[in-house]
Design a protein around this nucleic acid. Structure first.
Lengths: 211, 211
DNA sequence: CAGGTTATTATCCAAACGTATAACAACAGC
DNA sequence: GCTGTTGTTATACGTTTGGATAATAACCTG
């Protein structure tokens, strides 16, 4: 007679979320090659076999984890851009993207691990495209509101170009600021971001930061 | 009686380079989790055991491969900045960083795979720091030459800030332009880069691109 | 509180993993 | 040409991998 482990029967939503969170934890701690089915199951507190009850293959689970990661980031940064006037919203959005909790080495490790799979698997490419377009759209909205408020007319094409450039700048500063935070003084990255965006948009210096 | 495979006895330098090239090939094609000792050996045309004759551990080989990748990129971009006047050199350097062969999905996949290991292993962090400082130094040199030539005095601190911002912008545009090249028209990324750098440096529009 | 569903566990599998060691083939020096 | 050195192959070891299957415990329904 053998005794079996007792367990809790969770709802599908709960269980899937737990498994995805465990997947991200494992990738962040041991790299994508260390995120094995067994490690993930152990981290989630279940047995490895259960994973195949929720995901037909490991790759599919990785893709779901990638989607969850990007949704979380998008939520965090858009939530930060909730000021009242367009200028404050734009500034807060920019700063939020280059300061904690977004500048987090765990997030960066996860992000890079998935990015490296984009050229290898079109499913990952589709997820990236989706989240990139969401980010670009959010930025374009913030910019057009900002310009409308400042009585400056900017064509849709210009607005897109600005969004692409700002996105590039923000991505790059986030990357380097997170990879080697000790190389920069406090607020140096955030300050550089604001000054740079002012310059990129051809605004008078201080126009974004001062009241 | 068993017949053994015939083989060529290579010099240490050759063999190491072959093995590192094979390592990068494997990572680019199958991700870092697909770059197994056996796959790498097969790609390099040797048997797996040989790897341990050149590298004491697999991790050490990965680090050597990362260093080789970054050295190659640095060489390519600095070689592109070999015009005569400082303005041309700066422009060529920027454009080189956001156009082929630097905007290459294979390179990006490799870069991201290693980036994701930086927070997990200090050896990778050290290699990143080294190559980042080299890039930043190159950029600062180009900038100070450019400003000196244009009779504009810029303090060392300003120059550093400019270099950080430009590096961020270039990184970000390289990233997005390489990840989803079909999302942008031809030369859109390069054009955005030039216009954005002009704005970042508070130059008159067209100052970098026109004769 | 009995009966039916199914989420979960337990167990197994063949293949591939990183590493270690001994035998051999290639080349250098003499 | 023979001999010594060593780069390279061959082979083996124990572990871990992703995946499949059958048994079972937990909950839902009546």
């Amino acid at each position: 007679m053998t005794t079996r482990r007792s367990y809790h029967r969770a709802s599908e939503g709960e269980r899937r979320e737990d498994l995805l969170a465990a997947t991200l934890d494992c990738i962040a701690e041991a790299g994508i090659e260390g995120a094995t089915v067994r490690q993930i199951a152990a981290r989630a507190g279940v047995t490895p076999g259960l994973i195949r009850h929720y995901f037909t293959t490991k790759d599919q689970m990785l893709q779901a984890a990638y989607r969850q990661l990007m949704n979380g980031i998008t939520q965090t940064t858009t939530a930060a851009a909730q000021g009242h006037d367009p200028r404050t919203r734009l500034r807060q959005f920019i700063v939020a993207n280059v300061t904690p909790p977004v500048t987090d080495s765990r997030t960066l490790s996860l992000w890079a691990a998935f990015i490296s799979h984009i050229p290898l698997d079109s499913a990952f490419a589709a997820i990236h495209r989706e989240s990139y377009l969401a980010f670009l759209g959010e930025l374009e909205k913030l910019l057009s509101d900002f310009f409308a408020d400042g009585k400056r007319t900017v064509s849709a094409g210009e607005c897109r170009s600005y969004a692409i450039a700002l996105n590039g700048l923000i991505d790059g500063l986030w990357l380097e600021g997170t990879l080697a935070p000790d190389m920069f003084e406090d607020n140096e990255i955030a300050g550089t971001a604001i000054v740079s965006v002012e310059a990129l948009l051809r605004l008078p210096p201080g126009d974004l930061s001062l009241a």
